[in-house]
Write a protein that binds this DNA or RNA. Structure first.
Lengths: 194, 194
DNA sequence: AAATGATGTTAAACTAGATTAACATTTACT
DNA sequence: AGTAAATGTTAATCTAGTTTAACATCATTT
């Protein structure tokens, strides 16, 4: 497996010596998942934080009525996990499922703790990554309360054009917190608006 | 100002030497805000990450119609900032305003960068803090999409009984993403349910 | 190319929650 | 104590988004 995109990503945040790079690579599992396979399953303890080398995943929560609620999509150069489950090593609230064949660089819980001890710079790396994710998450909360579904859809399309084209509409509706029927209505309104 | 609760909090996450403790304290501003004062204002670049020693704040976003949307409340032993603004040093989306007289331990942007360099353990501290905040934020997104307003209110009351009692109902309604009138209706239903 | 399953659309009836407006209660100030 | 301001309640009307159901389109397999 080609580890270059992963190492290049890391080096944007922290400069690793070649020794550290070797150590890091030795503790990471590079893994291929097929379309529809689960990287993380609700109820299991989440054992990994995953960097996506190629492919696409959805993170979703299945509610008591069996309805799927998509929390996020992840594509190349993004991370995916159930961080709440991972950091506390308790059962996951979320599923992470592949929407395409997906290659990931996987940090397991034990390996990551060891890596933090051996390469303290990685604390900085993950601090920065999680800070960004948290800031994005807070903005999303605001949007879900202060904007209409139509406005949220337009922002989504602008912000994630690559995802918009790769993912079926009914999943985008779920991400936006609306039904697929209503998204369909919004889209036909948008065509009419022009 | 009594710095004990702050140092005790830090030591729950990382063990500082007394030298590090002294250095840390020298780079922190302890500050008193009065009720209604702003710690952070929308539009300004956010210059601080704040640990609350005593008091209570609301973090909110004012939309184009002049409506307030509360993102979070913070009380003793919590943190508050506009992290998106802080890490990128761009204008803040959020306001942080004191709901009571509030004492904080303040990390400014420049000081925090220096502290990270001098006490690398702090990278670990903030990594862990932000991880928790992010996990909580993702759960909140799910709740806002998969639960009714009544269910969200009950969870809020359970999870944050201390805040529920300190904050007016109309702000709790804003946090829940509903109107004060509808929260009032929910409450009267709950009394009737018993 | 026919058949099956997955995805997307339309429209009618419905509901959770918003809006408006009038009133009640509590708090804080003089 | 009395008044004004802030907070909370109730009820009628309205609307963004849901539900249900029927149909349309597209992709995949045989």
């Amino acid at each position: 497996m080609d580890t270059t995109p992963f190492i290049e990503y890391i080096n944007k945040y922290v400069n690793l010596t070649s020794k550290e790079e070797t150590l890091l690579l030795s503790k990471i599992v590079f893994r291929n998942y097929l379309k529809d396979q689960y990287i993380i399953q609700q109820g299991d303890v989440c054992k990994s934080v995953n960097f996506i080398i190629s492919g696409c995943t959805k993170t979703f929560y299945m509610d008591l009525e069996g309805q799927e609620h998509i929390v996020m999509f992840s594509i190349e150069d993004w991370w995916t996990s159930d961080l709440g489950s991972f950091i506390t090593q308790t059962p996951a609230d979320f599923n992470v499922q592949c929407l395409e064949n997906t290659k990931v660089a996987q940090f397991t819980f034990d390996n990551l703790e060891k890596l933090y001890a051996e390469i303290p710079k990685l604390e900085r790396l993950f601090r920065m990554i999680v800070e960004r994710a948290f800031a994005a998450s807070q903005k999303r909360i605001i949007r879900s309360f202060s904007l209409t579904a139509k406005e949220r859809y337009l922002i989504f399309r602008e912000a994630y054009p690559k995802i918009d084209q790769r993912v079926p509409q009914y999943m985008i509706a779920s991400y936006l917190g609306i039904t697929k029927e209503f998204l369909s209505k919004i889209k036909s309104q948008l065509i009419y608006d022009q």
